[in-house]
Amino acid sequence: MIEEPRRHRVEFASGTAASVAKRRSFRDLERNDIEPDLPDWPSRPAFRVRGFFGRLGQYALTVVIRLLLLPLYIIADALGSPVSPEKRGKLEERENEIDDFPVMWAGEGQTARTLPWQLDPSRRSWRTVTEFEVAEPDGLVRIWSFEDTVQGSRHLSWGGGGKVPGSEALLWTLPRSEIVGAEIKRFSLDESDFRVSFRDGSWVRLTSSPDGAQRMVALLGQGMPESDPAPALP
């Protein structure tokens, strides 16, 4: 039993394979691009899977970053606070994790299309935070946003971390009964991605902290009717 609403920071997931790293797509049931059809969403360049040279560049970037961070790992270990690089689990769905990276899978009029664009980190201010809330008393799930006081830039931040007064806004609500399942996606950094499936067959792939993802899956998996399983996934 959930005694009070619980919130966790979430956003649309981003690819981790070189072909789709830091990218995401939005698809209908025939895998067509639906971004232009999502009402009031800020436009972005069309999704593309990286070719050979693009993937090669991603591999090179990963190697350089790990070499630069190696001294930090050594120092942290020497100080008694071991830090290990983020690890990615086993590939589960090549068609959705390497050949493409849909974070929204929905036919026309289906639930997943109603999620707010603010969940997309490439469309919002880097100071905007989105949180997913599961509330037991009224049987609703909600998505909130607020502006963070954090200082710095999208790539490097320091200080702050509070909530700008008056910036909180309710973006989305849905009856808890419309969610039929949630699962961790192993092919993500430290298993921080999770998929939420809706009763009409649509789904979204979100990401949080590893702990937040585990908690959200546990919360969204509570109270599901055994006689009403989640629809089969593509």
Rank of each mutant, 00 (worst) to 15 (best):
I2F: 12
P5C: 04
P5W: 07
H8S: 00
A13V: 05
V20A: 02
V20F: 00
A21D: 10
A21G: 07
R23K: 15
R23E: 12
R23A: 14
S25D: 02
E30L: 11
R31G: 02
N32M: 09
D33A: 05
D37I: 04
L38G: 01
D40S: 06
D40W: 06
D40Y: 06
P42K: 08
R44L: 15
P45M: 09
P45V: 04
R48S: 13
G51E: 09
G57C: 15
G57V: 11
Y59D: 13
L61Y: 13
T62H: 15
R66F: 08
L67W: 06
L69S: 07
L69V: 02
L72Y: 11
I74A: 13
D77T: 08
P82V: 12
S84H: 15
G89R: 09
K90S: 07
E92K: 03
N96Y: 10
E97S: 03
D99W: 08
F101V: 08
F101H: 15
P102L: 04
P102C: 13
V103T: 05
A106M: 03
G107A: 15
Q110A: 03
Q110T: 05
T111W: 04
A112K: 01
L119E: 00
D120V: 00
D120Y: 00
R124D: 04
R127T: 11
T130H: 12
E131R: 10
G139P: 11
L140E: 10
V141Y: 01
S145R: 14
F146D: 05
D148C: 10
L156C: 08
L156M: 13
G159A: 12
G162P: 05
P165V: 03
A169K: 14
T173W: 08
T173I: 08
S177L: 11
S177I: 04
S177Y: 10
K185S: 10
F198E: 03
F198K: 01
F198W: 05
R199E: 13
D200G: 04
S202R: 00
V204H: 02
R205W: 11
L206Y: 02
L206E: 01
D211L: 06
Q214V: 02
M216V: 02
M216L: 14
V217N: 00
V217I: 11
A218C: 09
P229Y: 11
P231C: 03
P234H: 14
